[in-house]
Design a protein around this nucleic acid. Structure first.
Lengths: 249, 249
DNA sequence: ACGTTTCAGTTAGAGGCTATCACTCAAGTT
DNA sequence: AACTTGAGTGATAGCCTCTAACTGAAACGT
């Protein structure tokens, strides 16, 4: 379902038919089966290529040749390079969202450590996939709405975990700035009413989610980009330290 | 015979000085003057192109046309696209190093806030330049030694600022984990002897420099990549909050 | 002042890429 | 059996990087 037939270009035909038959849920015509199968293989090859040479080196032509067919054939399946990359981005977000959700569910209650561990594992599993989401943005590009929807799904999972946490948990006593003592805390509280619509998370949770995100991304992205090589320390420990700091906030 | 080949690049070239002729310091032959001038203009156009379309869209051909000459002419000045990009990366690092050093010098003593402010200003000035350094890495690419040398120069400036800081400054009393209480702190202290050779910075300073780097990069890179758009809060305040947190560590 | 060398810039071209078009031909449909 | 759909093809245009052979002018040595 939801295939929506990309090839619009010529031969519209869109017409559609009127009722023809099946339309049921699972059953597909053999051609549809074949089509989705080929689309899947294209993406598979694309991921291989991205993992080894980066997204900028992704070539439809090379994929086609590796699949035994000739260049333009791929345009039956994807309108162009951009559409394929967008689909890969979508899949990457989807994969991260699922990983996150699974980690959140498996952990008793909601544990930031579980989320962080899942995030790091997911990133190390395929660094280029991480960079497809969080790497250098292409100036012109704007992700379609459904992709940003998945992004907020990820954020929602994180927010839930933060909201389900004892507010000032950490280190027994009082950290000097627990909630709205900081300027940023006040700022967050200000727009707490208008933002986070749909998310019943208190401002403190939002703030913690934000620092979780930015700090772990900071360590992770520099690690994956190799900026720590030659320094001799273990990035995993730095990651863990940042995680602890966020949890004990 | 044999005129070409041996192309340009081999070795030096870039060098600004190294007068082939005797001539002492500044004087260059007119051809050398012209050469460096053209090289500079090429880089100028390249920066324009990168700022608007990103590094992956950089085209030697387009640059040449915009300069009124025809494609292959540029290969007299740069051995290829990769060499040009490497030079741009070098310049970006150089620019950041200078900005950092200037901020460090102008501020009385060494102020992390001054460094942070300089960093953020530098990044916002040309986001694509920031991403050229800290963005998605190209799997095959490895920066030449002189570039990584500039990178450690930047780190050295940061380390100096951290070392010149009162160790447990922050919030009057005692933050729960001041120095080696954390696992990572101990880890850093472990290799403090072997690493940081040449930098007389104590482990605590190194640790602070690391968190300065990763946290501010975390906020900055997500902001520049547009991942905060639609959330309604002011990234500058989040940046400032993270800075404060690092300083009061 | 006159060769000689050096080098910027040119055109031509190989090879790769994205993408479009017209076409074939087999698989599904009626 | 006739018809319709669509997967795959080759040809083509236009962009790119980069190489090769050549032209012509500026710089240099004597």
């Amino acid at each position: 379902m939801a295939d929506t037939d990309t090839d619009a270009g010529s031969t519209d035909t869109g017409g559609t038919d009127t009722g023809s038959t099946d339309a049921g849920a699972g059953a597909k015509t053999p051609r549809e089966r074949y089509r989705t199968q080929v689309r899947a293989e294209i993406k598979e090859r694309a991921w291989e290529q991205i993992a080894t040479a980066g997204a900028s080196a992704l070539s439809l032509n090379a994929i086609a040749k590796r699949m035994g067919m000739s260049g333009p054939a791929l345009y039956r399946y994807y309108a162009g390079r951009d559409e394929l990359i967008t689909e890969l981005i979508r899949d990457a977000y989807r994969s991260l969202a699922d990983t996150f959700r699974a980690a959140s569910a498996s952990a008793s209650g909601a544990d930031l450590a579980a989320l962080a561990h899942a995030l790091r594992g997911w990133a190390l599993e395929d660094p280029q996939r991480y960079f497809l989401i969080y790497g250098t943005p292409v100036p012109g590009y704007h992700a379609p709405d459904d992709v940003t929807a998945i992004a907020s799904e990820i954020m929602a999972t994180l927010l839930d975990a933060c909201a389900a946490m004892p507010s000032g948990s950490g280190s027994g006593g009082d950290s000097p700035e627990t909630s709205t003592a900081t300027e940023f805390g006040a700022h967050i509280e200000d727009l707490g009413r208008q933002w986070a619509a749909g998310h019943p998370a208190p401002p403190a949770a939002l703030q913690r989610a934000l620092t979780f995100w930015t700090r772990l991304h900071g360590v992770l992205s520099l690690e994956l980009a190799g900026h720590f090589t030659g320094m001799g320390f273990d990035p995993a420990l730095l990651f863990a330290a940042e995680l602890d700091d966020v949890r004990a906030r």
